[in-house]
Amino acid sequence: MASGSQATVIAALTANGLITASKIGAAIASGSTAMLAESLHSFADTANQGLLLYGLNQAKRPADTRRPLGYGREVYFWTFTVSVVIFFLGGVFAIYEGTKKAFFETEHHSIDPFWTYVVLGASILFEGYSFAIAVGEFNEYRGDKPFFKALLETRDPVIPTVLFEDSAAIVGSMIALVGVWIADTLKLPIVDGLASIFIGTVLCGVGIFLALESRSLLIGEGASDEDYAKARACILTIPEIVGIEELLMPQLGPEEIMVNLAVTFRSDLTIQQVEQAIDRTEDAIRAQVPKVKRIFIEAESLKNISSNRY
């Protein structure tokens, strides 16, 4: 899903850049706190897409002596950074500004809603378009797996991050639209501040969720149950192998898995036959799970026989 992830991020970056500029103009023209919160939200989203693109490019770097297992987890770090930006720059700031306007300002300025309606309506359309692209890419990736199950189990956090950002953006724009309309129609500026608080609450929730997901990936998750089952099944098809002592499949990045395998071979095999069996085992694993890039196999039943393959 790496190439699809990059295309999705570029589409979101373009949409959010245009939306941010228009929202800032509308916030200045209207004097709406909710609109200001949405401007900061869109600015944070734009910055986040840039961070995700940077992470995707960093993850493509080949392994070297400093990072012998590669840079695949760069994506996880920058996704975590995105969650922090959403929480603080988007959520906390929106709650602060909304609270200040709703409960501590003694003089409220009137709101000119015209450009707010225009910009929020356009942003909902643009965000919806970006969201549809992300959903399409994700549906292609998940296949027949249920949507939310695939969303929670994916080892590529980029498209889910875009999905949650776009969802929060659409919800936030709708809240701002309703808040500005009520504040203008009923002449209750406090509602504009309350709308900003609601927007900030949504963003904080998204930030916390993404942070928890990124934390799990940063600490280290194994391959999916499906990939694990495929690898185990094809290993057991090798006639020279009579048992699997240990099978570890840590995820090194969205598109990279490492296999650490300890197996028991038949006791009547020669060293040459074991080596041939190891070669076939590696080929079988890679054929079934293309994301496997590194395989380490240890022959448990024979002394001093091990194979480390790259």
Rank of each mutant, 00 (worst) to 15 (best):
D225A: 14
L177E: 06
A211T: 10
I170R: 02
A176R: 12
L217M: 13
I197M: 14
D192A: 05
P189C: 02
I199W: 05
L177P: 05
A229Y: 11
P189S: 05
A183P: 03
I235Q: 12
L218M: 14
L194V: 15
E221H: 11
I199P: 03
G207M: 03
R215V: 13
G172Y: 02
A233H: 14
L210Q: 09
A233N: 14
L188N: 10
I190H: 00
G207Y: 04
D192Q: 08
S196Q: 04
A176L: 07
I235N: 11
T185K: 06
I170K: 00
S173V: 00
K230F: 07
S224Q: 12
F209P: 00
E226L: 11
C204L: 04
A231I: 14
C204G: 02
G179Q: 05
R215K: 12
T201A: 15
T185F: 05
A229R: 14
E221C: 13
C234V: 15
I182Q: 05
L212P: 00
A233D: 15
G220M: 11
L177G: 04
I190E: 12
I197R: 06
D192F: 08
K230A: 11
S224C: 11
V191T: 06
I170D: 01
V171M: 08
K230I: 02
I208K: 08
A195N: 06
D227H: 13
L212F: 14
V178M: 01
L218T: 06
S196E: 01
G172F: 03
I197D: 01
V206E: 03
S214D: 07
R215L: 14
V180P: 01
D227A: 13
T185G: 00
S196L: 03
S214P: 06
R232M: 10
A195D: 06
A176S: 14
G179L: 05
I190Q: 10
V178N: 02
I197K: 08
L188S: 11
K230Q: 12
L217W: 05
D227N: 15
L218D: 05
L188V: 13
A195Q: 05
L212G: 00
K187N: 13
I170Q: 01
S216F: 04
S224M: 09
V178D: 01
L218K: 04
R215H: 11
G220Q: 09
A176V: 12
S196P: 02
A176M: 09
K187S: 12
A211F: 08
R215P: 00
A211V: 10
S173M: 08
G172V: 05
G222N: 11
S214W: 10
E226K: 11
Y228K: 12
C234N: 13
D225H: 09
E221A: 13
C204V: 15
E226I: 15
L217V: 07
I199V: 14
G220C: 10
I175H: 01
V191A: 01
G205C: 07
V178I: 11
I197P: 08
V202N: 00
K230M: 09
I170T: 03
E221P: 07
T185Y: 07
G220H: 07
G205I: 09
G172K: 01
L188W: 12
D225L: 11
I182A: 10
A223D: 03
A229I: 01
P189G: 05
T201G: 15
V206F: 02
L194R: 08
V202L: 07
E213F: 01
F198S: 14
S173R: 05
G205T: 09
A233T: 11
A223M: 03
L218R: 09
D184A: 15
S196C: 03
